[in-house]
Design a protein around this nucleic acid. Structure first.
Lengths: 254, 254
DNA sequence: ACCCCGGAGTGATTGCGGTCACAGGTGTAG
DNA sequence: CTACACCTGTGACCGCAATCACTCCGGGGT
């Protein structure tokens, strides 16, 4: 494909990324949205998508814009956020490679509800809205997969509502977030207790963490101090070590 | 169960409802999920659905249950809520006739994330999960409509996140809710200002309103007093009259 | 008629966490 | 190496709203 050639030529060492050459050999294909489609459908899909590289900090789209289409993250993380006029911001989620962004807006035609900012240099596929919709109309199985994805999106939004609405204290919310992280990372059994400390990398500032749990930066700082004092965890640089997971779970409580 | 017996026995004049005989003549068909399907698809659809009547207070399903299928409200309102172990409850939305409930859980196979309690005697259609899924697989256009519905669900969850996470004060949230109500009701232009008071029926207790905006019952009471004192609105029985919509909008502000 | 119960209004008290204000710390670009 | 920008940690203060504890009201049920 000409497009890919172009990419190769102009971006030999784009932003220090190794480019994923083809969707067919992409390691994320298996566990994501468009796995198990018919070969014909897959072919059609790759004919309407275009790949591009973006630098760290780039904005794929901004809340309120009319939906141009969907983006699929090949590699790199992205921050989905929304903010009010008075500058307050919520981070709804950190998207990982393989995720489809802008799906609900593209399907419904409503404006994008979040802004997407890349946290690292990123390779992403783009599919324009009209192409995407006609593709879905012609491929019922793909439409069903999209429905599943949307269900998942809804579910995570729902979880966010629960934390925001049901948890009394800020410490509760922070504990919840940390446990979520640890589940994503070493999902392997009972780490994080006593003799089995669980380490994880946190690439977020306190400010950003605050925006994720709907509190202030200072409160996050104080809570981390607290948790450290209580021996629940340790922080060295960007590495967080969970020392007493049980106690964290107890904070979320009852 | 005794409850079901009661339902069967009293079915003749179920709960003072006029039964909607057929989906084909239902006035909600036009503007809802499965409009504009092919006649064949519509026929199939009505062959797999079953209609039932429920008393006020009935629970269609409960959060955490495995998804049995979807419910479509023919008439009557329902309260979608979720709650934590310690008894705190959030109401996510009040569903109106025509809405499809349990969609995301049914599509994804995840447990229902909310509980649905009927606020009035209600007629509803039920479609079992497996029937529904095979129907979707065989009708691509229906799958796409489902995707649209899910987008909408996501969108309203997203709005909830914004109010919960971005609004500073409780008054802001209440003002927002009231304006939402007024938009649903007399969407007609600039009512609710000065000489054009906009009346609307509120069938909710202060307790329930509190659960919708994530605050306490007492605070809702106090806020209503406040708003009345400031001439923004009046309350008589279950009728709420908006006197100064502009001021309400100013509360949401900046 | 009565009671009774669920809802509504209101005061007093208290504490969590937001905000302001600074003082270190760390990294990186010049 | 220095400088500047951006993080992090902490103290002081103070306001909103949760909570507790009542009273009052109205509509059913018996």
């Amino acid at each position: 494909m000409a497009k890919t050639d172009l990419v190769e030529k102009t971006m030999n060492v784009p932003y220090g990324l190794n480019i994923i050459e083809s969707c067919l050999t992409c390691k994320f294909r298996e566990d994501r949205l468009f796995c198990q489609l018919s070969p014909a459908a897959l072919k059609k899909l790759s004919s309407i998508k275009s790949t591009a590289m973006y630098p760290k900090g780039a904005l794929l789209f901004i809340e309120g814009q009319l939906p141009r289409g969907v983006f699929i993250l090949c590699q790199g993380k992205a921050k989905l956020s929304t903010s009010s006029k008075d500058g307050k911001t919520i981070i709804l989620k950190i998207a990982e490679p393989g995720e489809v962004l802008g799906l609900s807006a593209t399907v419904s035609g409503r404006p994008y509800e979040v802004s997407v900012e890349l946290m690292e240099p990123t390779q992403a596929n783009f599919i324009a809205r009209d192409h995407f919709l006609t593709f879905l109309r012609e491929n019922g199985d793909a439409a069903l997969r999209v429905a599943e994805q949307l269900s998942e999106n809804y579910h995570s939004a729902y979880e966010e509502i629960r934390t925001l609405g049901l948890s009394a204290s800020a410490s509760e919310k922070l504990a919840k977030l940390i446990l979520e992280w640890s589940a994503d990372a070493g999902s392997s059994k009972g780490l994080g207790n006593g003799k089995n400390p669980l380490k994880l990398k946190v690439g977020l500032t306190h400010e950003e963490i605050a925006e994720m749990i709907g509190t202030s930066r200072e409160t996050v700082s104080r809570l981390f101090s607290d948790f450290k004092k209580k021996q629940l965890l340790e922080v060295k640089g960007s590495t967080l070590t969970i020392r007493n997971r049980a106690a964290l779970e107890r904070i979320i409580q009852s």
